[in-house]
């Protein structure tokens, strides 16, 4: 199976603190991969290093065989954990901007944006400034931008954060649509229910290293058939305090 993401011996730290140590894993093309872990376990740091936002201390982080660059030819859809858009701009202008940055023509970006807004019930808000929308509506717009230009690799960092159950279901449906189109999806989440429903393989990070890695079935079998929730608790349960996302 073709590997779209390859991470080998990746180490990363901030100052004297080591966040990730010799982490290696891969993501196959077309699969949905769960990157799991408690707060501060290094999930977001790994994604940021993979996308070239953070420089790694050592190791190789490759997408389609090379370090990620905007001009590298990978159609990426990235929903970062830190949410935000141009608050003073109308929804449609922001979507058009990102759509065009992703290589769409203005007309194509407009039709994609409007189709998405129709689907999520925000078509009437197309000309509304983003700061006039609720937090959940802003999240939807950001998700819409993420999936513009038909990404072949979707990286979603805590995608359901701030969503109510209805919108969570909507998001799951959108992810499933992209799975069906053959996109590779990397899901960074705490929500084990989503993982069990969507993911083919997972990695659980603890203290910057892999605490579990394999298909969902393999990981569950290795832990006596327990649910992912129980496995998560058994791995992280001894931690009585959280940390910042790193």
């Amino acid at each position: 199976m073709t590997q779209i993401i390859q991470i080998k011996d990746f180490s990363m730290g901030f100052g004297d603190v080591t966040v990730i140590k010799d982490l290696s894993f891969h993501v196959n093309k077309g699969e949905t991969f769960g990157l799991l872990g408690s707060n501060g376990s290094g999930k977001t740091t790994t994604i940021r290093a993979l996308l070239g936002i953070y420089p790694p201390r050592s190791g190789e982080l490759l997408i389609s065989g090379k370090p990620y660059s905007v001009s590298g030819g990978v159609r990426l859809g990235y929903l970062p954990e830190e949410r935000g858009l141009y608050k003073k701009e109308p929804v449609i202008d922001t979507m058009l901007y990102f759509g065009q940055l992703k290589g769409l023509t203005r007309e194509r970006a407009y039709s994609e944006a409007m189709a998405f807004l129709e689907r999520v019930g925000l078509a009437d808000k197309a000309k509304t400034r983003l700061d006039k929308l609720s937090g959940g509506q802003q999240q939807k717009v950001q998700l819409g931008i993420t999936i513009m230009a038909d990404p072949e690799l979707l990286i979603l960092d805590e995608p359901t954060k701030g969503f109510d159950p209805v919108n969570r279901r909507l998001l799951m449906n959108i992810i499933e649509d992209h799975q069906k189109k053959g996109a590779t999806v990397v899901l960074v989440t705490h929500q084990m229910e989503e993982v069990e429903r969507l993911c083919d393989r997972i990695i659980l990070l603890k203290d910057g290293a892999a605490a579990a890695y394999g298909t969902v079935k393999e990981v569950r079998e290795k832990h006596g058939g327990k649910s992912l929730d129980d496995i998560f608790i058994s791995i992280y349960g001894d931690e009585d305090k959280g940390g910042d996302n790193a």
Partner: peptide
């Protein structure tokens, strides 16, 4: 600073050089 304050920078850096 607007991009930073709006937290839009991460999406931008993965979309445009």
């Amino acid at each position: 600073t607007e991009e930073k304050e709006n937290r839009v920078i991460e999406m931008l850096l993965t979309t445009v050089e």
